[in-house]
Design a protein around this nucleic acid. Structure first.
Length: 198
DNA sequence: ATCACGATAACG
DNA sequence: GTTATCGTGATC
């Protein structure tokens, strides 16, 4: 399966975020192949989005990759422990991104369970990657992959299945004022693999 | 001081 | 099943 290319990501975040639902996230690691269907994303919309790290044109070492070309990984540490994984979208110079919040595991669940330090049984497959930091841990996405090109191996996306989509407001951005109410979170309808209910 | 989170505890 | 609490360290 061909990786999704630059042109897929070089579109507005509000188009890419829902389009990624149903697509595969794939990571070739030394442990084995990890993959899963993306079931939850959020759009972060550049300098006019009060929830965005680039709001009002803020440009720092941390968010620098957002300002570059689409299709690169924006990864950062939050709350001292947790990693977040985004894909840069939009045109070069327009700091947009899509935040990947949850994945339905397909390949490499045994490895994911080991990475997550939980036992693997039928009841907890949905807990392997049902959150932004959990999926980083499960998929062996580390901070040193900051800036990585995600249009080719080892970490990339492929086209997936058609899915029904629902929206909600975004999670964990109470600081964003009115922006906290925008319906920029996208979920696969009725998926049990999402981080929390819409 | 703040934060795109999640494990745990203390409840049903 | 639910809700509340708080650790953790890079960032600015």
């Amino acid at each position: 399966m061909m990786p999704l290319g630059r042109s897929f990501f070089a579109r507005p975040s509000l188009q890419v975020a829902p389009d990624l639902l149903g697509c595969m996230l794939v990571h070739y690691t030394s442990e084995g192949v990890l993959s899963g269907i993306i079931v939850e994303t959020e759009s972060y919309g550049g300098i006019n989005d009060p929830a965005s790290h680039a709001f009002k044109g803020k440009r720092t070492a941390r968010n620098e990759v957002m300002w570059g070309p689409a299709g690169h990984a924006y990864i950062y540490l939050i709350y001292g422990i947790h990693l977040c994984f985004n894909v840069v979208t939009g045109q070069d110079g327009d700091p947009q991104g899509v935040f990947i919040r949850a994945v339905e595991p397909r390949l490499g669940m045994k490895i994911m369970a080991r990475e997550r330090n939980i036992s693997l049984d039928r009841n907890n497959i949905r807990k392997l990657a049902n959150g932004p930091s959990k999926l980083c841990t499960a998929f062996c996405i580390t901070k040193d992959m900051y800036g990585t090109d995600v249009t080719s191996a080892p970490l990339f996306f492929t086209a997936g299945e058609d899915v029904d989509i629902v929206t909600s407001d975004r999670i964990g951005i109470d600081y964003a004022g009115n922006g906290a109410n925008w319906p920029w979170r996208f979920l696969v309808k009725d998926s049990p693999y999402i981080s929390r209910k819409a």
